[in-house]
Design a binder for these strands. Structure first.
Lengths: 346, 346
DNA sequence: GTGAAAGCGCTAACAG
DNA sequence: CTGTTAGCGCTTTCAC
């Protein structure tokens, strides 16, 4: 009835618990014969290691804490998937926490992860987090911390992000290459770095290709369907010659799409539309929406790899040295996903 | 440098570790004064409970293992979100495992969760799982097991599902009420129970409303965009009078939508379309797609509630009694999401 | 190559 | 109301 322990196995085989432990952990000092013996006995007794005891003693849990705003958001779900996959193949498990975009829950989450003695934490910050003390706490406890996507540079932790500037640059150049001449941009709130980066990428792509950068071509919005509709309307009312719209996020692009459709404007013939994020709905709208993919799966893998590196450094006691070094920041290449909405006929 | 323990606090205050432990756990036998004293000392020393030690000793982890096919699938992400939310408010944390639709990983996942001594497991079965031994193992170990959505009745575990029959029935009646007269159905693989249930719901709704059930109105497919396109094509080529299509899943509905659009058939005027699942893309297609919602968030909450019940029974030793009882099965009401694709003009 | 002994940090009887 | 004691199941020196 009660769980089998290494004691039970030892008794069964007239040997000692320590030998059983070593055998089960494939320790080199145990003979192949006894290992075999012990393993089959373990199997027969349906033995299962008690990880709590093991971790308590060894100081390692092989659990890695993940802190995200929400599994409900496709992007984060995909990143978790990426982390989980590679973590598994490295013998790690995932303890998941969602902040639900709340700073308060985020603090709680960090607290719990630390209590559980996770071997490291991979996190993406909630929208409304302002105070970062809980993350400093993680660092103070020397628990490896890796950030992804929603990153704060002040934390000087290794991190993975996608190159927003470049993504926007690629997007804009794609439109140019397709033959669009007058390319507008619907941007997002400028106090958020990634949106500003995307704006800069757009501007620089125009400049590089000797296209005029015109304030009339830029419309600011709040990243919603509505702001996409409104943005498209305003842009076109200001300038009838606009023949392409690059939107800062897919949802905004969708709004633009809906407005254009409603106005009977043909896409991609009269106006091309391009989004950002490769959200799950983008292949399903009409026309299918070209967009920029942020590689969530790779982001997850890279984050985990950074965690392993941090762990390695820690065990080598590279603490002080590390303080001097710039933390490693992996910047993923955005990927252009070409679909119907930007296929201008030659 | 090393983590503060209850020993450190005890030493600081010239008291004993057990008193500290009790105080921190708000045990009634400790005076308010000492509690206060100990709590502030803990705070000052930046004490954090070691949950491994606590769990090892107490036999409870307050962690609940979740096993799902993939976080990448919006539905499961949403269910996890639902579980996490209510679990948190009940003092439980989530250890997440993804089977990636693989039986092998699923076995591994169960193994790890058991090793970690989770207090219970909430699971949804992978597509390719045939052998259920690992789940029987969970039951044998008396670890509360709750299933959701992808359920196997053989396991006789408490479970939460959505009423597929009823959802299809509602969907079909909705189309009838909107004035559609000749309603077709694109179904899925019949060996999967939920698809068969949906077919039955469709058939019964027609019968109840005295509409003829006609084999020509039913097309079988493989739940893909392609099978949606093809299904719609075949249906309409067989019967020009079809004025509505109810598809077994949203993605199939999408295929039908695309085919109809391509044929210049007006929706919802000439043909109405209705899906199933309320996938994230459904509000964004043109026309926006009416569908049946499966209430993932509530599913998560109910699953957790069932877990709590199972735990309660276990601690009351209701083991044998429980064996005789039918396991509780919660059947959620599907919810009709009415959008543009079924708004037939009167 | 194997075993004895100690202890990870905590909780829960029990005694006082 | 507080303190002593024992031990959860495992790993890890260290001795043999």
């Amino acid at each position: 009835m009660a769980r089998t322990t290494i004691h039970d196995i030892a008794k069964e085989l007239n040997t000692s618990p320590s030998t059983v432990s070593k055998a089960l952990n494939d320790h080199p000092s145990i003979s192949a014969a006894t290992k075999e013996l012990i393993r089959t006995a373990a199997q027969n007794l349906n033995y299962r290691q008690n990880r709590l005891a093991s971790s308590l003693r060894s100081g390692r849990t092989n659990i890695i804490g993940i802190l995200i705003p929400s599994t409900d958001i496709g992007f984060f779900g995909a990143v978790v998937h990426g982390i989980e996959k590679i973590a598994r193949s490295n013998g790690y498990n995932i303890l998941l926490f969602q902040s639900s975009e709340t700073g308060e829950y985020e603090v709680e989450g960090v607290e719990t992860l630390l209590q559980t003695s996770v071997d490291g934490i991979i996190a993406s910050i909630a929208k409304d987090t302002s105070n970062l003390d809980h993350f400093y706490d993680v660092k103070r406890r020397k628990v490896p911390l890796v950030m992804f996507d929603r990153v704060k540079d002040e934390l000087t932790s290794p991190s993975v992000v996608v190159d927003d500037y470049k993504g926007a640059f690629m997007a804009t150049e794609h439109l140019i290459q397709k033959g669009y001449k007058r390319i507008a941009h619907i941007s997002g709130p400028q106090h958020i770095k990634i949106f500003n980066d995307r704006l800069l990428g757009y501007v620089d792509a125009l400049k590089k290709n000797n296209l005029p950068v015109d304030d009339d071509l830029i419309q600011y919005g709040r990243n919603s369907i509505e702001s996409g509709k409104l943005g498209a309307e305003r842009l076109l009312s200001r300038d009838k010659n606009i023949d392409a719209i690059f939107a800062v996020v897919d949802i905004t692009a969708l709004g633009a799409l809906q407005y254009l459709k409603q106005q009977g404007i043909k896409m991609p013939e009269q106006v091309g539309v391009l989004g950002f994020g490769n959200e799950s709905f983008t292949p399903y709208v009409t026309p299918t929406l070209s967009t920029i993919d942020q590689q969530p799966a790779r982001m997850g893998e890279e984050a985990f790899t950074l965690f392993l590196e941090a762990l390695g450094k820690k065990s080598n006691g590279v603490d002080t040295l590390e303080m001097l070094e710039e933390p490693k920041k992996i910047i993923l290449e955005p990927v252009l996903i070409e679909r119907e909405s930007t296929q201008r006929p030659k």
